Each structure stands twice: as C-alpha cells, then as structure tokens.
Lab assay of single mutants.
Amino acid sequence: PVYLSVKADNSMFIGNDPVTDETMITALNALTEGKKDTTIFFRADKTVDYETLMKVMDTLHQAGYLKIGLVG
C-alpha cells in the first residue's frame, strides 16, 4: 500500500520519505510505476486545515490518482 501523510506542521511524507508539493507526484509515479489506479491511503494530522487537505487531494486528482482512501 502507498501512504501519503500530512503532519501537523504541513510536512508531507510518502511512506517515511519526505516530499514537497513539487515532488509529490514524481515520487508517487516512481513508487507506483505510473499505475494511476493504485489506491493512495491519505492520512493527515487532525490539526491540518481543510484547505491544505483539499489542495493535496486536488493535486492527486489532477495527476490521475482517483483512488484515494482516507485513513485516521
């Protein structure tokens, strides 16, 4: 499974590897070998604001990742 996490300080990680807004999709493409039907499990600290969550989800959708599971 692929886990994308947003921490309380808005830092992002794919698994244990830090990513930025600019590198997130490139890292996901490498990890999933470009398979856009891969489910991305998205988790965020409860203090992360809604705007940040939606920005990340919008970026995922624009890149073609449509299977996003929200996890606690």
Score class of each variant (00 low, 15 high):
60 L>R: 00
53 L>A: 04
46 K>H: 12
20 T>R: 04
30 A>S: 09
53 L>N: 02
18 P>W: 07
20 T>W: 03
39 T>Y: 14
38 T>A: 07
9 D>V: 06
20 T>Y: 05
57 M>A: 05
51 E>M: 12
40 I>Q: 00
57 M>Q: 04
16 N>C: 15
47 T>M: 13
45 D>M: 03
57 M>W: 09
70 L>A: 05
7 K>P: 02
1 P>T: 10
41 F>D: 04
34 G>A: 04
60 L>N: 00
24 M>K: 00
7 K>D: 08
31 L>E: 04
44 A>Q: 04
10 N>M: 12
50 Y>L: 12
52 T>F: 15
52 T>A: 09
60 L>Y: 00
50 Y>T: 10
19 V>N: 01
65 Y>S: 00
48 V>T: 07
22 E>G: 08
65 Y>T: 01
14 I>H: 01
68 I>R: 02
26 T>D: 14
66 L>N: 11
60 L>Q: 00
57 M>D: 01
26 T>A: 13
56 V>K: 04
22 E>D: 11
42 F>A: 05
71 V>R: 06
65 Y>K: 00
24 M>T: 01
29 N>M: 07
70 L>M: 12
31 L>Y: 09
65 Y>L: 01
9 D>Y: 06
58 D>E: 14
29 N>G: 05
51 E>I: 11
41 F>M: 12
16 N>R: 10
6 V>L: 12
13 F>W: 15
53 L>E: 02
11 S>R: 12
4 L>C: 03
61 H>G: 07
27 A>M: 15
24 M>H: 00
8 A>T: 06
16 N>Y: 08
1 P>Y: 14
39 T>L: 14
63 A>M: 03
43 R>T: 14
28 L>E: 00
64 G>S: 02
27 A>I: 14
17 D>S: 12
71 V>Y: 07
3 Y>N: 04
5 S>Y: 15
49 D>S: 15
12 M>Q: 02
1 P>V: 12
40 I>C: 01
67 K>T: 12
52 T>R: 13
45 D>C: 06
36 K>E: 04
53 L>H: 03
61 H>D: 03
50 Y>R: 12
34 G>N: 09
62 Q>R: 14
3 Y>K: 03
17 D>R: 11
45 D>S: 06
60 L>T: 01
38 T>N: 05
6 V>C: 03
65 Y>M: 01
27 A>T: 14
37 D>E: 09
64 G>C: 04
63 A>H: 09
15 G>W: 03
22 E>C: 06
44 A>S: 08
23 T>H: 06
51 E>C: 13
29 N>A: 07
16 N>I: 07
33 E>R: 14
60 L>K: 00
45 D>P: 05
20 T>E: 05
35 K>R: 13
64 G>P: 00
56 V>T: 05
45 D>W: 07
21 D>Y: 15
43 R>A: 13
29 N>W: 06
13 F>K: 05
24 M>W: 07
58 D>Y: 12
59 T>R: 14
16 N>W: 06
72 G>I: 14
57 M>Y: 07
12 M>H: 02
38 T>D: 03
50 Y>P: 13
43 R>E: 13
67 K>E: 07
49 D>F: 06
71 V>A: 11
19 V>Y: 04
67 K>Y: 10
26 T>M: 10
47 T>Q: 12
6 V>I: 15
25 I>C: 03
8 A>W: 11
1 P>Q: 09
11 S>K: 12
36 K>Y: 08
72 G>F: 10
69 G>L: 15
40 I>L: 04
59 T>E: 07
55 K>M: 08
24 M>A: 02
7 K>G: 09
47 T>P: 06
40 I>T: 00
54 M>S: 09
29 N>V: 08
51 E>T: 10
68 I>D: 02
16 N>F: 09
72 G>A: 11
36 K>N: 05
11 S>A: 08
41 F>N: 05
71 V>G: 07
63 A>L: 04
62 Q>S: 11
72 G>C: 13
9 D>I: 04
5 S>D: 12
25 I>D: 01
13 F>C: 09
3 Y>D: 03
18 P>H: 08
18 P>I: 09
35 K>N: 14
29 N>L: 08
37 D>W: 06
42 F>I: 15
53 L>S: 03
34 G>T: 04
71 V>Q: 09
62 Q>K: 14
19 V>R: 00
21 D>N: 14
14 I>E: 00
26 T>W: 07
12 M>S: 01
65 Y>G: 00
20 T>Q: 04
